[in-house]
Design a protein around this nucleic acid. Structure first.
Lengths: 233, 233
DNA sequence: AAGGTAAGTGTATTATTTACACATACAGAG
DNA sequence: CTCTGTATGTGTAAATAATACACTTACCTT
């Protein structure tokens, strides 16, 4: 208790996005502001230090918005990462020096995961010029810091909580077909599901309600559209 | 990014203990080192600031040992608590001033929950003179800071993870009867279970193995003893 | 009008969960 | 030694949930 035990605290957001093309994660590119050339620009999860007067959930929302212009998505804390050396790796030094007052200071981060429907993102936020991009989960390369670990852990948590929490609907357009819902489950759980049985289960979910509306413009029998109506209780 | 965004980080341990008498939680009493009398000594969860060179899990183990002499228990991170005002309450000021360099500094805490078998704690660590005590979950009063919230959240997490992780065995003596195991489940889940069905399920758990040993000194049919043998795989 | 495409639907089979009652082994009392 | 009290230990039938599986329908295109 004698010396100053202060450190930095950040939040990192693992935002999953889904469209018919598969499951993506939102990454940003570090601005290559380092003077020397030998450090290539890494991708990383959107994250930054929290402000001294904001709560954690609030910080996650703010940071995500500042870095990607994405607003109001479902963000849920899933784990804190506190390895004393998690930001000490050589590869990460140059960038830290360019953006932080105290680049050597230890940083503990709180991980959040979030979910968005890519269909509802039309058109994409202009600010994506800023370096944010949706990367297919299969194609994520090495990230800055320990962000690969954080991403893996977030995905594990997503799988576990998919059925218990009502998460899946955040990943779909507001109006969706049961086939879309099923495809989403299949991507996340990584296994094929039986169409009939799946639909039987959905019928039990009282918060998935059919709309008076059908798919249009498809060259097959148009599907019934559904929406998610969370009941407060 | 302009000003210093350092803050304090602590760990708090919610250690559950179980004996035939019920489910308890480990609390410590703040030493009443305040000069003025009008601040009564609060109970709190064992917790303290982390050191700058230790990991979070490591910090949890150390802090728990320093405050209660309890060593090597299963401790699992469950949530970070970061309300900017969580240590700003009037009731907590005096104590903070007596133990911290920067009593006004914001503290974010990472919650861990842990489990011990009270039967295996015979006799109790001498150091419990230091003010640690097992308090029946029903009888926990108001705690310092936001520790009631942390406790509730830990208990929720315990319930959820009881079956998926192999947690329950940490709460029992090394040799236990199936009736003890069942009673534990009933306390945590807060519902009665059917004896036969419960035993059927346990038979499926390959890591619960019968010993060549029976209960002695009981005035009824002695129960088979079991132990928990985690298989590495 | 015909062909291509995904939507939508029911039933039989199997596995899992639930409900339920009596014989057994020991300790203590008489 | 016998009797009584007490918690242990065990099986089966009924209900519920999970799985496997194939054909008709509605729309679009050519």
């Amino acid at each position: 208790m004698s010396q100053n035990q202060s450190l930095h605290l950040s939040v990192d957001c693992v935002v999953f996005g889904y469209d018919d093309d598969g499951l993506k994660v939102l990454l940003i590119n570090q601005k290559d502001s380092s003077p020397d050339q030998n450090s290539s620009p890494w991708s990383q999860l959107p994250g930054d230090l929290i402000l001294l007067d904001e709560g954690l959930d609030q910080a996650a929302q703010r940071v995500l918005f500042e870095l990607t212009q994405i607003n109001g998505v479902y963000l849920k804390q899933f784990m804190a990462f506190g390895d004393p050396n998690r930001v000490k790796d050589l590869k990460d030094r140059a960038w830290l020096q360019s953006v932080r007052n105290l680049p050597e200071q230890r940083v503990v981060t709180v991980g959040y995961y979030g979910l968005v429907s890519l269909q509802d993102f039309t058109p994409r936020p202009a600010s994506f010029a800023g370096g944010a991009q949706w990367v297919d989960l299969q194609e994520v390369g090495p990230l800055a810091f320990d962000h690969n670990i954080i991403l893996d852990q977030a995905f594990e948590t997503l799988k576990e909580q998919l059925e218990s929490q009502h998460i899946s609907f955040e990943l779909l357009p507001k109006k969706f077909t049961l086939t879309q819902l099923q495809a989403l489950y299949e991507v996340i759980l990584d296994k094929k599901l039986d169409k009939r049985n799946f639909r039987k289960n959905v019928k039990k979910m009282t918060h998935v309600v059919p709309l008076d509306e059908k798919q249009t413009g498809v060259m097959h029998k148009p599907a019934q559209l559904f929406s998610y109506e969370p009941r407060k209780n």
